[in-house]
Design a protein around this nucleic acid. Structure first.
Length: 227
DNA sequence: GCATTAACCACAG
DNA sequence: CTGTGGTTAATGC
């Protein structure tokens, strides 16, 4: 099975890839490979040599880094999105890892092909830069919030993040264990567990294991804001 | 001092 | 793996 058809007709094309002309799309198809991953699989790993840009077509992924004391979840991303541009373009070895939180379909794009597009197609390069910019600003905010908000605010923010950015719904199942959730909001599983039951008894959310229904968006947003 | 916050520990289901 | 209770260190009033 050849790839180039897949790229031309791919329904998950990135905004950047939409700027590519037919020849470039064929080139992309010839220089990338698709792979699928099951929940828990490693997509790429910190410290391992990397020569591909990863494009996440479908699925949810956690990016994590081996910190001074333990593994730290940096970010949770949902496809379609690029995954490893910062860790591939400028670095010989991956500076962080990506692990599937759901079933994942991803394309591994040859780095030289990707670089050629950036160098020769200004529109493509612009869309990539735009993406990286949004990302950086977003992470700046996350960084400040993680340091300055109280744990209740961070948990509330995380719930709203899943609702708005990942599931686009007020009812969903968190793709993390309590322990991972704790890690994600820079806290512990015990504390997160307590806050969640608190929010439940306060009728701000309905909680059934990993399932969360947001009952009171206003109060949740208030808690997220006021920290 | 006294209260609050949140981590750490331990144990049960 | 998760929830809960007790303990404790740090911080604020």
């Amino acid at each position: 099975m050849t790839n180039f058809q897949a790229c031309i007709t791919c329904p998950f094309k990135s905004t950047a890839a939409k700027t590519l002309n037919e020849d470039e799309l064929y080139a992309l198809g010839d220089n990338c490979a698709q792979a699928s991953f099951k929940k828990g699989n490693t997509i790429f790993k910190q410290g391992i040599f990397s020569s591909n840009i990863v494009y996440l077509k479908e699925g949810i992924v956690q990016l994590h880094i081996d910190g001074p004391t333990s593994e730290q979840i940096i970010k949770i991303s949902k496809g379609p999105t690029y995954l490893g541009i910062p860790t591939t373009l400028d670095e010989k070895y991956n500076r962080y890892s990506a692990t599937a939180l759901t079933e994942v379909y991803a394309c591994f794009i040859n780095i030289d092909t990707f670089k050629t597009f950036v160098q020769e197609n200004g529109q493509f390069a612009y869309e990539i830069i735009l993406d990286l910019c949004k990302n950086e600003v977003n992470l700046f905010n996350k960084c400040v919030n993680r340091v300055q908000k109280h744990i209740r605010g961070r948990v509330a923010e995380a719930i709203l993040f899943f609702a708005h950015e990942i599931y686009n719904a007020d009812s969903f199942a968190i793709p993390l264990t309590r322990s991972e959730f704790g890690n994600f909001v820079a806290s512990t599983r015990e504390t997160v567990s307590r806050i969640l039951t608190e929010l439940h008894t306060e009728k701000i959310i309905a909680l059934h294991g990993k399932h969360i229904d947001i009952l009171d968006n206003k109060r949740l947003a208030l808690i997220s804001r006021s920290g």
